[in-house]
Nucleic acid binder design. Structure first.
Lengths: 241, 241
DNA sequence: TAGTGGTCTAGACCACGAC
DNA sequence: TCGTGGTCTAGACCACTAC
């Protein structure tokens, strides 16, 4: 078994789970870990950087690393795909297609997707049979054509697209609060004007080409988003909308 | 001027701003940059990792780095402090203290702050004179005592605390949507039941000791949160609330 | 096949923390 | 003062991309 930084990080995560390093305790020094794992200090540092980015440990120059409370993070795939996220939570996901149309792009869609015509999918997403989210996604033509041929009620679009060789690489998410419209309320089976968490999402491939532009609306208390940051690391922005 | 990875990153950021690398173009290779800046490849890699974490470039093994759209990120301080954020946006911040009481901690507060008694501050935050956010913050005793002695209407609590040697190091943020209560509506001058973006925030010092536990409520369309992530990096979690 | 980014090594020096 | 993490160097090999 090759001992790389991922292996070191996984071992340390397992140690956290096993309670070897309770929250508030200090990790061994980088040199000690390097000796223990038989790797160079740089490799240990890479592993520890991974754990820090997951919010598991915090760092201060000159002092040993502090173990923070356990956090279960989700990978990019779970973040992007409702289905994978649901599976990770142990809740069977579901979907119901409300509409799938091919039409001219709105100004916003054309700007984001760089495409005059789009496929637009409206879908209600279910968790254990309960509607929790409305997904309104615009796809550029070449992706939309693939989506149109799928059974969106029963299979994961993201997973199928990946199987077809479509690579998701980057995503930008913007979160805000909105009131449920009459249609939102009907689809989610809630009161009109109930508060919804709105997520605008633009996903691109490794070349920076837009793959989807989506507005998702989550039923008020069904879902929350969590972000960790520290003095030395942050990926969250707060801006005027 | 020492050429460290921060300097290299800053230079590249300036190049982006100057339009030397338009979105969609490719960066020079790590080796070329190392030669150009007179540093080792590792230093260049560290600079590029910084830019990647800011959503400025994307990376694929075997191919040169792709320049993404410009993004102006905010540092940890701007993220944590309403005042610094407002200044960074060019909007004069303001505040109005609604209540500051010393009382027994609720169960949730006691758990997060590890303190039986807390100082609890309710404050309306203004942007250019317009109310945009309600801040309800619990401080443990030793921090609260400092806060109680401040003029919270006119000075930045975060900044004053830092001047007094209180170090903010980590923060966890959870975002969801809620309806405005009658009090919320009155304080923000909006309709009751209007959608609000709720941010729960726990801030700790470098030792992992909790410094504040806050529930902030942003007026519907006043603010949005943005998160960037890629296949290899993510700090955002979606979870049941 | 040549070039690129990903990973790793084995050193080194410094600023900061703990004592 | 001594140990720690932060930074940097100058190499090396591999997997992947582009051609």
């Amino acid at each position: 078994m090759a001992v790389g930084y991922k292996q070191v990080a996984a071992d340390l995560r397992a140690d956290f789970d096993a309670g070897s390093y309770p929250p508030g305790s200090r990790l061994p020094s980088e040199s000690e870990l390097a000796r223990a794992y038989g790797v160079a200090r740089g490799t240990v540092r890479q592993a520890l950087a991974t754990l820090a980015s997951e919010g598991l440990v915090s760092t201060r120059k000159g002092a040993r690393r502090l173990v923070l409370g356990q956090q279960r993070l989700q990978g990019f795939n779970e973040l992007r795909s409702f289905s994978e996220w649901a599976h990770a939570m142990g809740e069977p996901p579901g979907g119901r297609v409300v509409a799938l149309v091919r039409r001219e792009a709105t100004a916003a869609e054309a700007e984001r997707l760089n495409s005059d015509r789009v496929y637009h999918l409206t879908r209600v997403r279910l968790l254990s049979g309960r509607p929790v989210m409305i997904e309104r996604t615009a796809y550029p033509q070449h992706i939309g054509a693939l989506v149109a041929s799928m059974d969106a009620d029963h299979e994961s679009i993201t997973q199928r697209l990946q199987e077809l060789g479509v690579l998701f690489a980057n995503a930008a998410h913007t979160l805000s609060a909105v009131s449920a419209t009459a249609e939102d309320a009907r689809l989610l089976d809630i009161r009109p004007r109930a508060p919804l968490l709105r997520e605008l999402r633009l996903t691109t491939d490794p070349d920076g080409v837009a793959l989807e532009w989506s507005e998702d609306r989550y039923a008020g208390e069904a879902v929350a988003f969590t972000v960790h940051n520290s003095v030395h690391q942050n990926t969250l922005i707060r801006g005027l909308s």
